[in-house]
């Protein structure tokens, strides 16, 4: 119930931010035509505010927020973000083995055979397939 109300409050805030700040700053003002660039975005912002208020006042629907799962998902997202940043700088072949190894170790994989499969075989196979076979580039 509380989480539903919180998500509703977030949607109201998002709607207000969009209507008063983001949409005016990031759309051009045009003074002709039935539909303006900001017409549908503004309608969406108003709907966010309205539906958010409804959700705060009459919260409905199930939620499945687990604190530890959220924490672990955040960790994986951060590791992926870092890997993408590093991949853009140092390349796919240098970073992917470290990235996959980190992910597998983080979930508790300790068997050396499977780890080698993820760290060596997987990146090499993808690289060979994409770069040599499909003739596409990789970071």
């Amino acid at each position: 119930m509380l989480l539903n109300r919180l998500s509703g409050a977030f949607v109201v805030t998002l709607g207000l931010l969009l209507y008063f700040m983001i949409i005016p700053m990031h759309t051009e003002v045009v003074d002709y035509g039935w539909m303006r660039p900001q017409s549908i975005p503004n309608a969406c912002a108003i709907l966010f505010v309205f539906l958010g208020i409804v959700q705060v006042l009459f919260p409905t629907g199930a939620t499945s927020v687990g604190f530890f799962e959220l924490l672990r998902v955040s960790l994986f997202a951060i590791v992926t973000m870092a890997a993408l940043w590093a991949m853009a700088r140092y390349g796919f072949l240098a970073i992917t083995p470290i990235f996959v190894g980190a992910l597998m170790l983080l979930v508790g994989e300790r068997r050396i055979g499977w780890l080698l499969g993820g760290v060596v075989v997987l990146p090499l196979t993808i690289w060979l397939t994409v770069v040599l076979l499909l003739d596409r580039t990789l970071p």
């Binding site: 992910l103 979930v107 997987l122």
Partner: peptide, 18 residues
């Protein structure tokens, strides 16, 4: 699953990059 889902994540990255 540790290998399967790590591989799937890398495939998504390379796929979207391509």
């Amino acid at each position: 699953e540790s290998l399967v889902f790590s591989a799937a994540l890398v495939l998504c990255i390379t796929g979207v990059y391509a």
